[in-house]
Design a protein around this nucleic acid. Sequence first.
DNA 1: GCTGCTCTTGACACTAGGTATCATTTCGTG
DNA 2: CACGAAATGATACCTAGTGTCAAGAGCAGC
Lengths: 153, 153
Amino acid sequence: MSKDVTVDQMLSAFEAAGMRTTRPRRAMAEQLVAWGAKEKEFSSEDLWHAVQEKAPWVGRATAYRTVQLLQDLGFLDRVTFADGTERYHVVAAGHEHHHHLTCEMCHRIVPVEACIAPAAFEAMAQQSGFAISGHRLEIFGRCPDCQDDAHSC
Amino acid sequence: MSKDVTVDQMLSAFEAAGMRTTRPRRAMAEQLVAWGAKEKEFSSEDLWHAVQEKAPWVGRATAYRTVQLLQDLGFLDRVTFADGTERYHVVAAGHEHHHHLTCEMCHRIVPVEACIAPAAFEAMAQQSGFAISGHRLEIFGRCPDCQDDAHSC
DNA sequence: GCTGCTCTTGACACTAGGTATCATTTCGTG
DNA sequence: CACGAAATGATACCTAGTGTCAAGAGCAGC
Ligand SMILES: [Mn+2]
Ligand SMILES: [Mn+2]
Ligand SMILES: [Zn+2]
Ligand SMILES: [Zn+2]
C-alpha cells in the first residue's frame, strides 16, 4: 500500500533513460530511501553530507548533478523557501501538479492543491500575447510548532 | 498625468524614514528616474554598473544596500525570473498587490492581477494550522517578440 | 572473462550574487 | 562651524552552485 519509491525504481529509471547505474547514484538513492518519502526536505548539500557518511568518495559536483537528474526523472520535487533557499523532497507516486506551503522557521513542507485557474492563464496569454510555459507558486508561513517562537531574528 | 516617481520623492522618503539623503542615494535615484518607470527591469548589479558611469566612486555594497532600501520604501518591486535571477523595476504610483508574467528570453515584465483567492488561503491555514505570512507567484513564458527565436540553448 | 568505447566521476578552479567588517567620510543638528 | 551618528567604499568573505578535464568505471560485444 505504501507508495514509497525504491532504490531499484530510481536506478531503473536511469537505465531506461540510457544512463548508467553507477556507485554514486546507488549511494544517493539509498540515502533518499533511508530518509523515506515523508516530505523530508533537504538541500543538495544536505544530501551530499549525508551520503558522505557511507560513501565518502562521492564528490560534491556528482551529488549536485545527481540531484538535478533525479529531479528531471521525477523522483525529486524542488521547493523554494521564504528565505530564497532551494530544497527538495522525494515525491511519492502519483505526482499531480501541486505547490507548497512552507514553514519559514523549520522548513516543514505541506503540499497544497491551490493554483491559478486555467482560464486565468488563457486570459493572460490572450491579453499579453505571451506563450506561457510555466509558473511558480509558493506560500510561506509558520507551522503550528513554530508559531510561539518569537525569534524572527 | 504621469505617475512616474521623481528623484525628490525618493530622497524625501529617505528623510521621512529618518535616513540621510546622501550622494550615492541621489546618484542612484537619478539613474532610476533617467531609465523611467516603464517596467524597465534591472538587477542590482546592472544598476551599479549604470551608476558607475556618472558616479564611479559609488561602491558595490552601497548599491546593493540602496536597492534593498528602495524596495523597503516601496519604490522598487522585485521580480524572480524563470532562470532564478532576481531583478527589479520602479513601481509607478498606486502599487496594488500584483504578480508578474515574465519573458524567459528578454526579461520583459507584464504585471498581472491573477492571484489566489483569500478564501483559499483561509482554507489552507485552517487545514494545515499554519499562520500564513506571504506568498509568491511568478508566471513564465515568451513575449511576442521572442516566440520565433528557436534558440532555447 | 576481456576489450574497448563512452559515460561518468572526483578534484579543483571558478563564478554570480551577494553580505560582514571596519576605518574613514559625510550628513545635518545644534 | 563642530560634533556625533549614520553612511560609505574597500575589502574580505560567503553560499550555492557550475565548468574543466584527466582518470575511472559501466556495459555491449566478443
Ligand atoms: Mn511536492
Ligand atoms: Mn510589479
Ligand atoms: Zn515550522
Ligand atoms: Zn521576450
